[in-house]
Nucleic acid binder design. Structure first.
Length: 814
RNA sequence: GCCCGGGUGGCGGAACUGGUAGACGCAAAGGACUUAAAAUCCUUUGGUGCUAUGCACCGUGUGGGUUCGACUCCCACCCCGGGCACCA
């Protein structure tokens, strides 16, 4: 058949229309097959796709298509997040309706996705900014409220001056807002709604173990650090001259006999009672305005004393700027001899330093001369009745001792905080709560859900909850007593939406429940979740938490949402990462315009293994386009179009080509099943193409047809438009997606001639062409007889000959 | 400071279990086709040296070690990226 030029501009829209018409990506198309749920993380709510997304989706789509071809029924859904802040900012800056802005952005992003030909089942499409999604967010919130998992408190919170709203701890990155990397967050005291993530801290931590292997190690580590479990002891020091207690938390109770003072956080309640408010306020201010690690330790002596309950020793009470109220109990015992930080503090203020732990194989350090506090475990000294015990054992006994006498107990502390979900913004799910003058906090009755956002709200971006200014929204009758009441005016963090969207996908139209338990159970858990590392302690913590809560509500029957997680690397150009703040360094739309979606997708998979950062190079994209053109032209000019290949080899060239074909199938299949190093898969496909070009005139027609058919199948997951088009050029019926992935014959893939290298003392000296499977004696004989080897053996003794069949012979001489 | 990654040609990267370092692609050079250009196709391409179509030596951040053999394993160090960090 005549050669055709490769024209993605014609091919891609045509197949896009065809796929939409025939609904090829429907997840329920093959109910008898095993299930596979592949999901890419939702796009950032920025409104447009950047190359990083394209890479994310190209990986997911390649996998989904591969799984289809391996005979799975695949759920590969796509939906839309709330775009809370961008929508509202567009409203403030350009006087647009946030709803209208959001819908037009969704339309635009959907258009981009369709153009790229991703294999989504659009019948599962959801939008978290629609009333029905609000309803189930609110329903879920109320269920948590009923169980005490949602509560309200006044708290010092992180405030982003650019977003004009509070942020959760997870949303603060290096002291700055996660959206505005150059804007420092401020502290602000507000009354807020919280979800009790800390109730699940232990489970969130221990279940990481069951994710090991399926999730990247660094994500597990980050979550482990984030949860920050410390096992230790709470000890009550008595305030001298009163019945009051000061509780301290320590992980090293074995050092308590070396404690020479107690230090309170500046915001500890006793500080103001002792009359040190002014000094404390200064400390808090200076801490808030600079990087905590750089602030010098400062303290104030309160002049009061506490009693160490273990030895009844009287120790001074200080206030220290480095002690945090939120962690542990807001007060510490300082052990300067065995803690670097305490050492620094106590040396500065001349507080005694008293060693009580000695290294197992060394003496107890001498008191004031030591420059470095010994932080290790060792043997406890000067601590009657615990002297002579090893640290670990001492801890156990001292815990028990404290418990017996009622002044302390073993305790666990977490770094994780409860999730603050109130946002002083308009475009989000309203928190379904009413405040009644008589009844107090009253949840909105379930049958009145959803509480919807009022229209025509004047958005000013001043940091006040915009809903507060809408009297029709604020003023309601109390559902309990019918009296005057007001609605909660804050909206929910949009991370709530994304923490359960993967369940809603399984039952997107349900209007009686967030989802049907049986429908969700048919797809879950997510077999493969794919997304960027930036959500390691954000979305991925929230999603795990929400899954556990939903399990406890009886909605689902498992502990973790996703068994496998894959983090793709970032797309970089000239060292600039593509992110929400830097914008698009490479614009996907213009790249598609120029080269077509297949080329862009292929390059995003070829230039680096998917977990590594990818350096975008325009020249490289052109190379990819060249490769696709090469394949396209070769297939069209060699296709007989009769659709029935006869792959019987009739000469050595045929056999060599078939061998290469089977090697390629083996390589690509193996990459899909293990490491996803699609760059090497594509390299193998290129090698096969090069081989075809080199031998075009010598190969028999049947073998060419078979090779081309399988080559096109191999390209299916990577360049789906072109592969589909060639599939039909080869005379095939139906979509390639539903054709079977080609099998390889390991026997055919094996070379029958192998090159065996000959080394002398490990240095490469010669190569032998040998039939595969030659035995050791034969190889040794051939190697030592080799004319290139002979000179190296002259006047030497052969001490040993190492033979690796089909690989090498190493002759050891001296 | 602690915990993860990583360091290979001019560039992106390959080498999967210790067994031919540099696959594949880019860039570059030369050639074919063409009135010409683009496109396409073919060839060469880690470095140095030579008596040069081949051969020798060097070469995977640095220095040691294990081994017949090390990009790969062990020890020490340097550099780059990321995470955590007054967390008691």
């Amino acid at each position: 058949m005549p050669e055709k030029p490769y024209n993605p501009r014609e091919i891609e829209p045509r197949w896009q229309r065809e796929w939409e018409k025939t609904d090829v990506f429907r997840a329920d198309a093959h109910p008898s097959r095993p299930k596979y749920y592949v999901l890419e993380m939702l796009p950032y709510p920025s409104g447009t796709l950047h190359m990083g997304h394209i890479r994310n989706y190209s990986i997911g789509d390649a996998l989904a298509r591969y799984k289809w071809m391996r005979g799975f029924r695949v759920l590969h859904p796509m939906g839309w997040d709330s775009f809370g802040l961008p929508a509202e900012n567009a409203a403030i800056q350009n006087n647009r309706d946030p709803g209208e802005w959001t819908r037009s952005n969704i339309a635009q992003m959907k258009q981009q996705h369709r153009r790229f030909g991703f294999s989504y089942d659009w019948s599962t499409e959801i939008s978290s900014c629609e009333p029905e999604y609000y309803r189930w967010n609110q329903w879920f919130f109320l269920k948590m409220y009923e169980r005490g998992l949602a509560y309200r408190k006044q708290a010092q919170l992180n405030w982003c001056p650019r977003c004009q709203t509070v942020l959760a701890n997870e949303q603060v990155v290096n002291g700055c807002c996660w959206r505005h990397e150059d804007t420092a967050v401020e502290g602000r005291s507000l009354e807020q709604w919280f979800l009790r993530t800390t109730d699940y801290a232990d489970e969130l931590l221990s279940d990481l173990r069951q994710l090991a292997g399926g999730w990247p190690e660094r994500v597990l580590t980050m979550q482990r650090n984030w949860i920050g479990k410390s096992v230790g002891t709470r000890v009550d020091f008595l305030l001298e001259g009163s019945e009051e207690k000061i509780t301290v938390f320590t992980t090293r109770v074995d050092t308590i006999y070396g404690s020479t003072c107690v230090i309170l956080a500046p915001d500890h309640e006793l500080v103001s009672r002792f009359g040190f408010e002014k000094q404390a306020e200064k400390m808090i201010r200076s801490r808030a305005s600079s990087n905590p690690a750089d602030v010098e330790k400062e303290g104030v002596d309160t002049g009061r004393y506490a009693i160490n309950p273990y030895n009844n020793e009287r120790v001074p009470i200080w206030i220290g700027n480095f002690v945090l109220l939120e962690y542990g109990s807001g007060a510490i015992m300082a052990v300067p001899a065995h803690d670097q930080r305490d050492f620094e503090f106590c040396r500065k203020y001349g507080i005694p330093i008293r060693p009580v732990i000695r290294p197992v194989d060394g003496p107890l350090a001498e008191e004031p001369t030591m420059e470095e506090a010994f932080e290790g475990y060792g043997v406890v000294e000067n601590s009657p009745p615990f002297s002579g015990l090893a640290s670990e054992e001492a801890k156990q006994k001292m815990n028990a001792w404290a418990k017996e006498r009622g002044f302390g107990r073993g305790a666990i502390t977490y770094r994780l905080r409860d999730w603050g979900i109130s946002r002083q913004r308009y475009w989000g799910t309203p928190i379904p709560i009413i405040y009644c003058q008589q009844c107090g906090v009253v949840p909105v009755p379930e049958d009145e859900l959803p509480v919807l956002l009022p229209a025509n709200v004047k958005l000013t971006g001043t940091g006040q909850s915009p809903l507060r200014s809408v009297p029709e929204f604020v003023n309601v009758d109390c559902p309990k007593c019918g009296g005057k009441a007001e609605r909660e005016c804050d909206t929910m963090d949009t991370f709530i939406d994304s923490s359960w969207y993967f369940y809603r996908y399984c039952d997107p139209k349900n209007n009686r429940a967030p989802y049907d338990t049986a429908k969700v159970a048919a797809w879950f858990p997510i077999d493969q979740y794919i997304g960027g590392i930036e959500h390691a302690v954000l979305h991925l913590v929230y999603a795990r938490f929400v899954t556990k809560v939903m399990r406890d509500l009886g909605l689902i029957g498992w502990n973790e949402p996703a068994t496998r997680l894959f983090n793709q690397g970032m797309v970089i150009r000239d060292g600039a990462k593509m992110s929400k703040s830097k914008g698009n360094v490479v614009d996907p739309d213009s790249a598609v315009e120029q080269y077509g979606a297949d080329t862009v997708r292929l390059f995003s998979l070829f230039a680096a293994p998917p977990e590594k950062d990818l350096d975008w190079q325009d020249a490289g994209v052109e190379g990819m386009h060249r490769f696709l053109g090469r394949v396209y032209r070769f297939v069209t000019r060699n296709a007989t179009g009769n659709g029935s290949p006869n792959g019987e080899p009739s000469n050595d060239t045929d056999r060599a080509l078939l061998r290469k074909l089977h090697q390629t199938i083996q390589k690509v299949t193996n990459d899909f099943e293990t490491r996803w190093h699609f760059n090497t898969s594509l390299a193998a496909i290129m090698e096969l193409t090069n081989e075809l070009y080199a031998r075009e005139s010598e190969i028999s027609t049947g073998v060419v047809q078979e090779t081309l058919t399988k080559l096109v199948l191999l390209l299916g997951p990577f360049a789906p438009y072109m592969a589909e088009d060639l599939w039909h050029e080869l005379g095939k019926e139906g979509t390639l997606l539903h054709a079977a992935w080609p099998d390889f014959d390991p026997e055919l893939a094996k070379e029958d001639q192998v090159e065996v290298v000959v080394q002398v003392n490990g240095k490469l000296r010669s190569r032998l062409a040998v039939a595969r499977g030659a035995d050791r004696a034969e190889l040794e004989r051939l190697a030592t007889m080799d004319p290139k080897i002979a000179p190296y053996l002259e006047k030497k003794t052969v001490r040993k000959v190492i033979v690796v069949p089909d690989k090498l012979v190493n002759v050891v001489v001296n």
